[in-house]
């Protein structure tokens, strides 16, 4: 019975959604804002990657908010999983296999490097802070899998996280102080396609990369924590 009702609701929802969907002009030239981004982007921002310039500059405020959401998710999870007295269980963990251990030790620095590359080159190539951070966090996930006796310090991750967040806000405030606009791209645009170009994008992406990396690693670390 309930399933039938649910299906009816879904059908009605689908029926409704077809109306706006059929009106959206797919496949035509992008209108208005999107067109502006595509055509004016490079001259306005100096970033080769349009997506990045939209994410960090035009809609940088949203990105700040999204970073905050991730921060909240990490903090919220930590607060719910918080244990008044941390007691690591004495249960001896099963060793992971030699292949996994060796492979992870080998891959870990490379993964970090790749992650760093992704967020440092956010304004030039596809990718950016979020992606880079996620890659870095995946490196930590591997460490958690392979070297089970290692404990990642959540305190240190938290410090990195906070510093990165503060950097983002600070960059915004510097923009406010120098140019009168919060998150203003106060650095020079530089030459297109160079590493040091596109104003504040690299700075912010580095901050985001650190932040996302440490947050995701922190989340995994929190979930891995054992008690008796």
């Amino acid at each position: 019975m309930r399933k039938i009702i649910a299906l009816i609701f879904l059908a009605i929802l689908l029926w409704g959604i077809t109306k706006p969907v059929s009106r959206i002009p797919f496949g035509t030239n992008k209108i208005k804002v999107a067109e502006h981004y595509i055509t004016k982007d490079i001259t306005e921002t100096g970033a080769a990657n349009v997506v990045t310039s939209v994410v960090v500059l035009y809609r940088g405020f949203d990105t700040l908010g999204e970073v905050t959401i991730l921060f909240i998710a990490a903090i919220g999870l930590a607060s719910i999983l918080y244990l008044p007295r941390k007691k690591v269980s004495d249960e001896v963990l099963e060793e992971s296999s030699l292949i996994l251990r060796t492979g992870c030790r080998f891959l870990f620095p490379l993964i970090l490097l790749f992650g760093a590359y992704i967020f440092v080159h956010g304004h030039l190539t596809p990718g950016g802070g979020f992606q880079g951070g996620a890659i870095i966090a995946s490196g930590f996930a591997l460490i958690f899998l392979s070297c089970r006796e290692r404990v990642v310090s959540t305190v240190k991750l938290g410090v990195v996280e906070s510093l990165a967040g503060m950097t983002f806000v600070a960059v915004g405030l510097i923009g406010l102080a120098t140019g009168g606009y919060f998150l203003l791209s106060f650095l020079p645009k530089g030459t297109l396609n160079m590493l040091f170009s596109a104003g504040i994008i690299p700075v912010i992406y580095v901050a985001i990369g650190f932040k996302v990396g440490s947050e995701l690693a922190g989340i995994i670390g929190n979930l891995m924590e054992r008690t008796q």
Partner: peptide, 23 residues
């Protein structure tokens, strides 16, 4: 004064709060 500070200041303080917590 720019009203954006109404958002930026609490946000910045929230980010820095864990560090103050360490102190």
């Amino acid at each position: 004064v720019n009203p954006v500070l109404l958002i930026a200041v609490p946000l910045g303080l929230a980010f820095s709060l864990p560090i103050f917590g360490l102190i």
